[in-house]
Design a protein around this nucleic acid. Structure first.
Lengths: 183, 183
DNA sequence: CTCTTCGAGTTGAAGGCTCAACTTTTCGGA
DNA sequence: TCCGAAAAGTTGAGCCTTCAACTCGAAGAG
């Protein structure tokens, strides 16, 4: 017999709509970033995380965690970012298995150049369409889902730089962070 | 000077959370489908749309539209689905530029085999986490975004099979649809 | 009737992602 | 001390998607 908990009509409509919204939204974000800054959104996120880190430097594994990237993905990505001259890797003395990833000045510049367009896109595709109440609801729903999907109350973040942090207007935040953490 | 409409703290948190939720959610959906049914979610969607079509057959361009796929992507995808024996292509007599895509019995069987696991996953990652009010809010937000991002009141769907339609529990719907539209 | 334009669909290259090994180093015991 | 298990990263293969041509047929203007 059939144990499947099928979706009722409402749930189906919701799922479909949700799916459509997200495809459309992320397609635009991705395309804008790709066309104007030659980088996929995943790379943008990596640069953002590095820009927010003390000394713009992070261990590979930590970077992978904070940027929601698999180890493998991050390795490939950083290899490419290194080719572009935006990131540098250096061995870690404490733990000889480890590697440091450091955001170069060129990488910072690339990020600052990419940020305005990206933020504008995010605003256009998301926030401009929603009322304040809807925005609040979206926030609540997203938080619930993140909690649910990580099945920890918040996140498996450890000591420094807890996870859910600034993202979009990276450059601004990053500049501040960089200034704050001391160049 | 700086014309960028930067995100304020709240907006940033919302965007970040939204991003995280979606990465986590779709990663799970994708992985489940890939591991248990050997197909990416995009292919699943294609099979669903075909299963819902009269005679389980659709023109390539229409299929591309309803499955939110670029022409190119669809061509590649259908090529693969054809290799798997799940879809067949045949030239269209009315318009000799055109091609029909038809869901084979094997394809239908594959879809029916994949559906329960997929639906269960969707329920687990999404609906199980949300209250009815949150689900309703999600639906509303998604609808707004879809409207916003297609900048048409609803969708550029033409004659038959308007766009936002059933998806997840495809097999059930499909069986019904197939029965209804007459085999 | 012909020319030009547009639409349908395909193709191949380039790039990113996943998965499954695999290496090296660290850590926790016995 | 020595050994097995776990952690950090990397690598290559395979797959999917995008982008930019490109082919072929349909449609409308002159």
């Amino acid at each position: 017999m059939d144990h499947t908990r099928w979706l009722d009509d409402d749930e189906q409509q919701t799922w479909r709509s949700f799916l459509t919204a997200h495809r459309l939204l992320f397609e635009r974000v991705e395309r804008e970033l790709q066309q104007t800054s030659r980088m996929p959104h995943a790379y943008y996120e990596i640069l953002v995380r590095l820009s927010e880190a003390p000394d713009r430097t992070l261990r590979m594994s930590r970077l992978a965690d904070t940027s929601l990237s698999s180890r493998s993905r991050l390795s490939h990505a950083v290899a490419r970012l290194e080719q572009a001259g935006w990131v540098e890797r250096s061995p870690c003395e404490d733990d000889r298995r480890g590697q440091w990833a450091h955001l170069t000045d060129a990488g910072m510049a690339a990020l600052e150049a990419a940020a305005p367009g990206h933020v504008e896109t995010v605003r256009q595709v998301l926030f401009d369409a929603l009322t304040p109440a809807q925005t609040a609801a979206l926030r609540e729903i997203s938080d619930v889902l993140v909690g649910h999907l990580t099945d920890g109350p918040v996140w498996p973040a450890a000591d420094d730089s807890a996870c859910p942090q600034a993202e979009a207007d990276a450059a601004a935040t990053a500049a501040a962070a960089a200034a704050a953490t001391g160049a």
